[in-house]
């Protein structure tokens, strides 16, 4: 039996969890899922992705997220069902909960997997390292193999013969010690801003922009294209842009139709953040800059000349 940890927001299943279910189906039979809470509609969606049995962790104190309490719930399902594997999406919570479960079981966790092959008692996994610029082939052993799936690698696909899963409610034994760390409230983000990870066009600036003020023309171009402004780590480190604008290994992962990289060299840690862009246009004064080798289009020149000319051209 394979068990998948499913995340949802008020019953809408996370895409990463659906991707994990899709991968999990190839690892063994049957596929069961575990969720915290029991919102309506969820079981049907999970059935469509091949889940035959759904373990719902229900407890009056589990309204809000508390890592140790949620992990305790998952652990109790793992202990009673002894699955061959427990999978989660490679999200903040997915990584956090599997780390707790792994730690409690004394088991390894293979993080950010992109492919998994069962091989006798073990799994042969391929996983992302270095933020996705390198892959590692590894062997994962253990009674219950724990792994997270890197987001956006496996396309979520429903099964042809969906069935409605059997529902099983579990009430874990929780005490105050499980609620030491817990979410006490939420703060909404600013409305009306184009989110970087959802923008159709991203105009990114690097050291070549030269100053915080230098971003004015990038802002202008982004506005003309209905897009968002981003930056490299150099730019956020110098305080020219806030860190929320950073693209790369330790920043945002973007997937726009077009990424316009202005005065960005194309370091590997930057490229892992924009490799899902459909197209890349590089504007750089150095034709040998690595970004040019990763781009679909390039303009060789000084951005302080190219960008104002482009903005003027688009305004004509």
């Amino acid at each position: 039996m394979i068990l998948a940890l499913v995340e949802h927001a008020d019953g809408a299943v996370d895409t990463t969890s659906l991707e994990a279910l899709t991968l999990a189906r190839g690892l063994g039979d049957p596929l069961e899922a575990v969720v915290v809470g029991a919102p309506g509609g969820l079981a049907e969606t999970l059935g469509a992705f091949g889940v035959t049995r759904l373990h719902r962790i229900v407890h009056e104190r589990l309204e809000e997220y508390a890592p140790e309490a949620w992990a305790q719930g998952v652990l109790e399902v793992v202990e009673s069902r002894a699955p061959g594997a427990l999978l989660a999406g490679g999200t903040d919570r997915g990584h956090e909960l599997l780390a707790h479960v792994g730690s409690r079981l004394g088991a390894a966790v293979a993080a950010s997997c992109v492919a998994v092959e069962p091989d006798g008692d073990v799994f042969r996994v391929t996983r992302q390292r270095w933020g996705g610029s390198l892959l590692e082939e590894a062997v994962l052993a253990g009674q219950t193999k724990l792994l997270t799936l890197a987001p956006h690698v496996v396309a979520a696909e429903p099964v042809a013969d969906a069935t409605f899963p059997e529902l099983l409610d579990v009430t874990p034994s929780l005490g105050d010690e499980h609620f030491r760390a817990r979410v006490t409230r939420r703060e909404e983000g600013a409305a009306g801003v184009v989110r970087l990870d959802q923008a159709r066009v991203v105009v990114g600036g690097g050291r070549g922009v030269g100053s915080a003020e230098g971003f004015a023309v990038l802002e202008e171009l982004a506005e003309l294209l209905g897009g968002a402004v981003a930056g490299s780590r150099v730019v956020t480190n110098l305080g020219w842009r806030p860190h929320t604008d950073q693209v790369g290994q330790t920043g945002a992962r973007i997937a726009p139709d077009l990424y316009i990289a202005c005065g960005v060299s194309g370091a590997i840690q930057h490229m892992v953040g924009c490799k899902s862009a459909k197209r890349i246009l590089a504007i750089n004064k150095d034709e040998h800059a690595p970004i040019v080798a990763h781009a679909d289009y390039a303009v060789i020149g000084d951005i302080h000349e190219v960008l104002p000319a482009l903005v003027a051209e688009l305004r004509r």
Partner: peptide, 19 residues
């Protein structure tokens, strides 16, 4: 329980930019 076999480079966007 996790043993490395080997590292490999991730596939890159090897493109020839249209200048």
């Amino acid at each position: 329980g996790l043993e490395k076999v080997r590292l490999l480079r991730a596939p890159e966007r090897g493109r020839r930019a249209e200048i």
